[in-house]
Design a protein around this nucleic acid. Structure first.
Lengths: 197, 197
DNA sequence: ATCTTTCTGTAGTGAACGATACAGATGGCT
DNA sequence: AGCCATCTGTATCGTTCACTACAGAAAGAT
């Protein structure tokens, strides 16, 4: 190691940047807003993270490993489709409404309003969401083939419904919904799980 | 009438502006993008509509009277709560996925990513959505008191669930969901309507 | 036909955007 | 202690932002 050492905690700064992106979204977050929240100057930001886009990509990765980890974990740990969806929705209700960080989900809400020149960010997040839908769909399809679900269930449609529920819960959280309200939404959505009526 | 008459159709221009706001959201829509889409110069825009915010407000009102009218109409015409929700979701599925205009709902998606200085737009749209939830909640509560629903139904929670479903459908439409997929989401959500299982 | 009033196009306003040049500060290394 | 690669703060880059001053064009009123 040579030269003057960095005067700030890189991970702590990254965490701060992520919170700002989470709250305002990619485009609406200015470098000035970031440097203020991270407590560093612009040159330090660029030296440590590249440019705004690279910082966002890294912040997104950090989100996936921390606050968004419950989704990845649930999808990998829960083999039973019904249990996976239950846990996904119930944990989302708690996570999205936590006062310890911005409401909702960064992957859902960080790039819904995009000008043409930063369409790449919207595309990246969309691919993240598409991956979640696909994983959920496969899980449901396996359950259907195993006979845990009626044969006429449309796996893709069901996966889209619960993905849409998560996006709706994120939107409601950003509109100020409380934990109890999000939990009620989750339970209502779970009533739509296929089965004899 | 005195002076040189306006060389463009004001309502047609307003319609174009609305489509751009619908597609990119309030902040990500620049004046340059607007003037290009409207086919007029910046001074004409400012003379006819005021400033960017006033233009957005008027575009929002125009949206409410045209593409978004089905929500207002459904909420005013359908007295039966169940029928209102069914019609809301089924018409939203068709409307949100139409190729004749940007996907999703302008009220849901035009100001989700906002910098602090245009928080007023986000607040305005949020109040629109809150009004919808309240109207739906009152309709459901009346149905519950009339005995059309189990007594232990939480009217607010159910209204939030279907509002959340609409927001989720808008998000899915923007992610590229087809009409059939949105319809499947709507039907799934309708399975959550309270009743004996 | 001329006047008057408004609109249109060019061209440019100050401010904020993302991103940097530069010089001085800093601390591990020899 | 002195060296030197790297970081930090100031001050600024060119671009784009929302917005407008100004001059010429256009048509109803007379």
């Amino acid at each position: 190691m040579l030269g003057r050492p960095r005067s700030f905690d890189r991970e702590a700064a990254l965490n701060c940047a992520m919170l700002v992106f989470w709250k305002h979204g990619y485009e609406a977050t200015s470098i000035a807003l970031l440097t203020k929240a991270m407590g560093i100057g612009a040159p330090s930001l660029y030296a440590a993270f590249g440019d705004k886009r690279a910082l966002f990509d890294e912040a997104l990765g950090y989100y996936a490993k921390t606050y968004g980890a419950f989704i990845v974990q649930t999808l990998s740990e829960e083999t039973d489709a019904r249990r996976a969806v239950e846990r996904l929705l119930r944990e989302a209700a708690v996570e999205f409404s936590s006062r310890a960080h911005p409401p909702g989900c960064l992957v859902v809400s960080a790039a819904t309003n995009c000008s043409p020149q930063s369409a790449g960010v919207a595309k990246l997040l969309r691919s993240f969401r598409a991956h979640t839908v696909r994983t959920l769909e496969e899980k449901i399809e396996r359950a259907r083939l195993a006979g845990h679900l009626p044969h006429d269930v449309n796996s893709r449609a069901l996966a889209l419904f619960y993905s849409s529920t998560i996006q709706g819960m994120s939107a409601q959280a950003r509109d100020g919904a409380t934990r109890e309200e999000l939990q009620a939404i989750a339970e209502a959505a779970l009533r739509a799980w296929p089965g004899p009526r």
